[in-house]
Design a protein around this nucleic acid. Structure first.
Length: 218
DNA sequence: AACTCGGGGCA
DNA sequence: TGCCCAGAGTT
């Protein structure tokens, strides 16, 4: 397991590799940001950004989205995966927003997670990126990267990863670390074919060394 | 913990 | 073509 110093040093290296790592969703309001993040589940930001301009032109706020039919919402997001579920969640979340939160996107994770279609990851990203509230969102990239680099135990749950990484990194860096790891996971530490041969973290990465046959497990 | 939803990306 | 994926909800 990597030490706190090693983890912070590794994150610093990733940050130098991807200095422009930042949220890339097109959205103008917290509501639109929340919807964009919901759509990001199992879809790329690029795919989401293709449909949100028309979606938010047609339904810019929870009032109009709650009033829309699921079929009409599906039409605007048809080109992304899981669009039926997502249309249902968008409408239901808009209705819940109006019913329970006076149409205002809440600023706490527990409140956000009460909205249909909003889970831990989506809630954390909304807090961090729409409101600037410190949060460490753990997604599949963060899970894969932290486990490969032995920043967390191999069996760690999402909650355990989140708690450990929040202890390892200064609070002021939680959000940036999340985005850095997204980029590192997306472009360097790929799920299926990680680019270990040209990875600057190879010297401290147990899995990378194992993959290249430079060292046995552990 | 396992299963479902689903079009897109990549081999 | 066939597999995997920037999740969340249900059982």
């Amino acid at each position: 397991m990597l030490t706190k110093q090693q983890i912070q040093a590794a994150v610093a290296v990733m940050s130098k590799m991807f200095p422009d790592a930042q949220p890339s969703l097109d959205a103008r309001t917290p509501f639109q940001y929340m919807i964009s993040v919901m759509l990001s589940a199992q879809a790329t930001d690029i795919s989401v950004n293709k449909v949100t301009p028309q979606l938010f032109k047609d339904y810019p706020d929870p009032q109009t989205m709650a009033a829309a039919s699921e079929v009409a919402l599906q039409a605007d997001i048809h080109s992304i995966g899981l669009y039926r579920n997502k249309a249902k969640h968008m409408k239901a979340a808009s209705e819940a927003l109006l019913r329970d939160f006076n149409g205002v996107v809440p600023h706490t994770r527990n409140e956000l997670m009460r909205l249909p279609g909003v889970g831990r990851k989506t809630a954390d990203v909304v807090l961090a990126d729409a409101f600037g509230i410190p949060a460490f969102a753990v997604d599949t990239h963060v899970t894969r990267v932290t486990k490969r680099l032995r920043m967390v135990p191999q069996k760690a749950t999402v909650l355990e990863i989140e708690q450990r990484m929040m202890q390892m990194m200064p609070e002021a860096q939680w959000v940036a670390t999340h985005h850095t790891m997204i980029y590192f996971g997306r472009y360097q530490c790929l799920a299926r074919a990680p680019k270990c041969e040209q990875c600057p973290l190879l010297d401290i990465c147990a899995e990378g060394q194992q993959r290249l046959g430079l060292k046995q497990a552990n």
